[in-house]
Design a protein around this nucleic acid. Structure first.
Lengths: 131, 131
DNA sequence: TATTGTTATACTCTATAACTATA
DNA sequence: TATAGTTATAGAGTATAACAATA
């Protein structure tokens, strides 16, 4: 578990380095990547996806919105809620981030077997289920 | 990789809950567990182990020292350096933390095969190597 | 000159509680 | 009453740069 924490730390650091020109923090990258993957979400949905509180996301979303990467669209169906929609430049940046993530994964996992990768997924799923 | 980040977040959160009575943060637990595992280390060695900067550790170590969990012993061999030594109560607390970590791991991994667990280790090792 | 560790600084992440608007 | 999201607040994590002491 200590190894897990170190690995996450190292990976986020490496990712930050590769995306240095975009000036994205880990939380910002995480939000963008999730929105790119799942399409427009509400704050509470994004909160569930990332495992962070809505109040934590407010600042992250503020920064992304100020930089023109996303828009908080009013949700006609529920006027308390917003749909977080990536702009064109937001989608471009998210694609860059996705690419960096995929590249790093490919580099790391290229020499490993599907069985090993399946084992990895089984373990992190199990860890999450007991947490 | 996003799943990795979510898992680490969830695990640290769960661990913090189980150790709530000890009032330890993730960084504090990490430092204690490393010192318990590897014995007395210098700040720079602990920095390497945990992947955090020495300047980051200063505050963590200050808190642990103020609570009587460790001592900064002068290193006779290199007078710029300290040996971070757990006190008796520090060792006790570290043992509690270790136990909570092991329990959580046992609960999660109990139903998984050695092959799956080996795959997990192979993947996080590979991720760390390319980071 | 280089290294060890601290200090000063600045920003981000994180959560809780109180709040507004809406359901 | 309950939920969605923000605001206010406070503490912790993070890194960089400058620094003192020592190698």
């Amino acid at each position: 578990m200590l190894a897990l924490q170190r690995t996450t730390h190292a990976v986020l650091h490496a990712l930050g380095g590769e995306l240095a020109d975009l000036h994205l923090t880990a939380a910002e990258t995480n939000a963008l990547a999730n929105l790119a993957d799942r399409g427009a979400l509400s704050v509470s949905q994004l909160s569930s996806e990332t495992g962070t509180k809505a109040s934590t996301l407010t600042n992250v979303l503020d920064r992304l919105e100020n930089r023109g990467y996303l828009v908080r669209e009013p949700d006609a169906a529920d006027r308390r809620s917003f749909r977080l929609v990536l702009t064109e430049s937001g989608a471009t940046v998210a694609a860059r981030a996705r690419e960096a993530i995929t590249d790093l994964e490919d580099r790391a996992l290229g020499s490993l077997s599907p069985t090993q990768i399946a084992g990895f997924h089984a373990v992190i799923t199990a860890l999450r289920e007991v947490s």
